[in-house]
């Protein structure tokens, strides 16, 4: 395995609020890494800082040893693609248009149609609804569309911010199964979750974030049986 993504000593603040105070992680090729933490731990802030969506006070992000630029659209062009918290599909656009805009950063490079077929093979329900407006999809379908849209950029790293948010347990299981399949087909995944159980079950390694600090890190299977983690993060099945 070789190092794919490296995040060093990330600091982010909103005015006086220090949301992230020196958080680091790495992701190897073909790995699934998750970051778990409670509400307000700084998970979304971390993702947005990696994507260049919020200003970093300190710290840098490296992809295959190359420092990523600070501008959001350049980060995407360099191979990072985020499925944002709350899905954020373009409601008035059709499913097809949402997928097409996902491929924007490629400027027509590669076989876009082939990748669209791949997305449809992962999520057949999207194909059935190809001309439907994204806003009319169910929550689960919108999450599938958001993932498909991010995959259309053919990213080196797929980042997901709480894909389980607001979905029924059975749909969450489906989506996580698809994430595993996507990873098996060669996409490295960085996942941020409040649903610690699902995240630990899916990922190879996990970082535990608490109010902007690293609390713990380790193999996900070890953390699943860690008494401290069990008490704090696995006590209740559904947090929201």
């Amino acid at each position: 395995m070789s190092m794919l993504l490296e995040v060093n000593n990330l600091h982010v603040s909103y005015g006086a609020i220090k949301a992230l105070q020196g958080f680091s992680l790495y992701l190897e090729e073909r790995e699934i890494v998750s970051v778990i933490g409670a509400n307000g731990a700084g998970k979304s802030t971390f993702m947005n800082a990696v994507m260049g969506m919020v200003k970093r006070d300190q710290g840098a992000v490296f992809l295959k040893g190359e420092k990523l630029p600070g501008k959001n659209f350049m980060v995407v062009q360099n191979g990072l693609s985020l499925v944002p918290e709350g899905r954020k599909v373009f409601a008035p656009l059709t499913v097809l248009e949402n997928l097409k805009i996902g491929a924007f950063s490629r400027a027509g490079h590669g076989d876009v149609n082939k990748d669209m077929e791949w997305v449809f093979s992962l999520f057949p329900r999207l194909k059935e609804r190809i001309h439907q407006h994204a806003g009319t999809l169910s929550g689960g379908e919108q999450q599938m569309l958001a993932i498909g849209r991010a995959l259309m950029a053919r990213p080196q790293v797929l980042l997901l911010d709480e894909p389980s948010l607001g979905l029924a347990p059975i749909i969450i299981r489906d989506i996580f199964a698809e994430l595993r399949r996507i990873n098996e087909e060669g996409v490295s995944i960085l996942l941020v979750e409040q649903n610690a159980r699902q995240a630990l079950l899916l990922s190879h390694r996990t970082y535990v974030l608490q109010t902007g600090h690293l609390l713990k890190e380790g193999l996900s299977k070890d953390l699943l049986s860690d008494p401290e983690i069990k008490a704090a993060y696995l006590g209740t099945r559904e947090k929201r």
């Binding site: 994507m51 693609s81 954020k88 490629r106």
Partner: peptide
Amino acid sequence: LAIRAAACDLHTAGLMGVNV
């Protein structure tokens, strides 16, 4: 298409690699 997406959500259009 990017403009139509941005009309819906400018922030998320940036996430698609659009130079906003």
